[in-house]
Write a protein that binds this DNA or RNA. Structure first.
Length: 430
RNA sequence: GCCCAGGUAGUGUAGCGGCCCAUCAUGUCUGCCUGUCACGCAGACGACUCGGAUUCGAAUUCCGACCUGGGCGCCA
């Protein structure tokens, strides 16, 4: 019976392991193999004089990164990594690895991201890479648990759609039988429609597609969006939910991913402090203006340089609130007393935007008016507008980028590090 | 899309008109080695992105294409 390498202790006497050959050190009369599975690494020691011919022949034939099965007694040895070693009685090559390999799993020689992504299956054998995706898995589970524990209903919405969600972003066109369709940029319209269905609290974690030709370390053409929508809630309430979710996700990772954080050499993993500061948009651009010396006017978008400058000033997670209605989507609710400002917010990490959300317009006529004010045609939104005629409750929600959450949490320099098979301007394979 | 920097063995690099049938490391192969832990030692193998131009001579200069990284824009 195979046991995980992490569970191999001298007390258990004998063990059978299956794993990849991490390193081979042949000293002549003595050969050391390091064998790796996803739980850890163990040394297998083969003394030439005591080993059987079958074992010696297999050890001679095996190459690095081959899959092997080894069984034999486990011995406590101070000199071995982990304080124990396995001396094989049986040594079977299950799957021989070819050489040379596209990259060095042991990381004696670094590999560039592009090389790594081309051979992602090998790259992901590296403990530090594997750790990122184990943590991302924990993040996903923590988020599902967070929403379920608060009574949210999980929904799935179509990724093949007939038209744009918000305008603004480019869509990928696809052939849908005899018609043209698009990959959805956001579940926004569908999650709002479920407010009209009376679901009250919904969430979805799923892919979104943006055909923007951006070329940066924080954009993807296929990303994972964590979306929620809540009836009878205003923007302030859903901001609190967002803050709680971020903190509880960090806490779960801190509690459950100690080994993975060590593998990433993250020693000072800090859980964000509750009470994220709320920075009104006019104050945000003031900070940006002072820090960058640029002439930023009210109503301008906050560019990358400004975003960084404000992030440095704030130093931790914060919200930007009270955005000009003109630069937020048509579905953001303007303040009654000052309609040029709306109840939209962005959740910022000092490095970048993580989430944006808003209280939504729930009155049909106002929504039509705002769609037209953005230069969009309300006819193509008929499927979306219809529910607003038949008792749409007030509601609010947000969308949070999962890759950006993981990237900022782990200090990854490139968002592609947080995706197994990233899709960007140039990469479609693997 | 724009700007900048690049593209040299499987990987990561040095070289930047002749000292280059190209440096170093890692890797692979062969040999030696019984406590390695980035094992060591000896030997071998393996590369100038593609196309054009300049030149007596191009990895090196110029032009074009393709590809990569970073910054910006757009965007979340």
């Amino acid at each position: 019976m195979r046991i995980p390498i992490q569970a191999v202790h001298p007390d258990i006497g004998e063990a059978e392991i299956i794993g990849w050959v991490h390193e081979i050190r042949d000293l002549g009369g003595l050969t050391f193999l390091l064998i790796r599975d996803r739980t850890g690494i163990i040394q297998v020691t083969i003394p030439k004089k005591k080993a059987t011919d079958a074992v010696l022949a297999a050890v001679k034939a095996v190459s690095r990164e081959s899959v092997i099965r080894v069984s034999g007694p486990v011995k406590p040895i101070d000199k071995a990594p982990g304080g124990r070693e396995l001396v094989p009685e049986l040594f079977e090559i299950i799957s021989l690895s070819a050489s040379p390999m596209p990259l060095d799993v042991v990381e004696k020689v670094p590999a560039e991201l592009d090389t790594r992504l081309d051979a992602r299956f090998l790259d992901a054998r590296r403990p530090r890479v594997s750790a990122v995706f184990q943590i991302r898995s924990t993040v996903t589970r923590a988020i599902y648990e967070f929403f379920f524990s608060r009574g949210f209903i999980n929904i799935t919405t179509p990724k093949i759609v007939a038209a744009a969600t918000e305008g603004g972003t480019e869509l990928f066109p696809i052939a849908y039988f005899e018609r043209e369709a698009f990959l959805n940029q956001s579940p926004q319209l569908y999650k709002q429609m479920m407010m009209a269905a009376g679901f009250e609290k919904v969430f979805e974690i799923g892919p979104i597609f943006r055909a923007e030709e951006h070329n940066t370390t924080k954009h993807l053409n296929e990303a994972t969006s964590i979306d929620m929508e809540m009836s009878f809630a205003d923007h302030l309430e859903v901001m609190k939910v967002l803050e709680d979710l971020v903190i509880s996700t960090y806490r779960t990772v801190a509690d459950q991913c100690g080994d993975q954080l060590s593998a990433l050499e993250i020693r000072d993993f800090a859980i964000p402090e509750p009470g994220f500061p709320r920075l009104p948009y006019p104050e945000a651009i003031e900070i940006a203006k002072k820090a960058t010396g640029e002439d930023i006017k009210y109503g301008d978008d906050i560019g990358t340089v400004s975003e960084k400058a404000i992030g440095e000033e704030m130093g931790a997670h914060y919200f930007i609130t009270d955005w000009p209605t003109a630069i937020k989507p048509y579905y953001a609710m303007p303040y009654e007393e000052e309609p040029s400002v709306c109840k939209a917010f962005d959740l910022m990490h000092p490095r970048m935007e993580l989430s944006s959300g808003a209280e939504r317009v729930h009155q049909h006529d106002q929504l039509v008016h705002q769609i037209r004010a953005k230069g969009l045609s309300s006819e193509s939104f008929e499927f979306y507008l219809n529910p607003f005629r038949y008792g749409m409750p007030p509601h609010a929600g947000w969308g949070l980028g999962e890759e950006r959450l993981v990237m900022t949490m782990l200090g990854l320099s490139n968002i592609r590090e947080a995706v197994l098979f990233p899709r960007d301007r140039h990469r479609l394979v693997p």
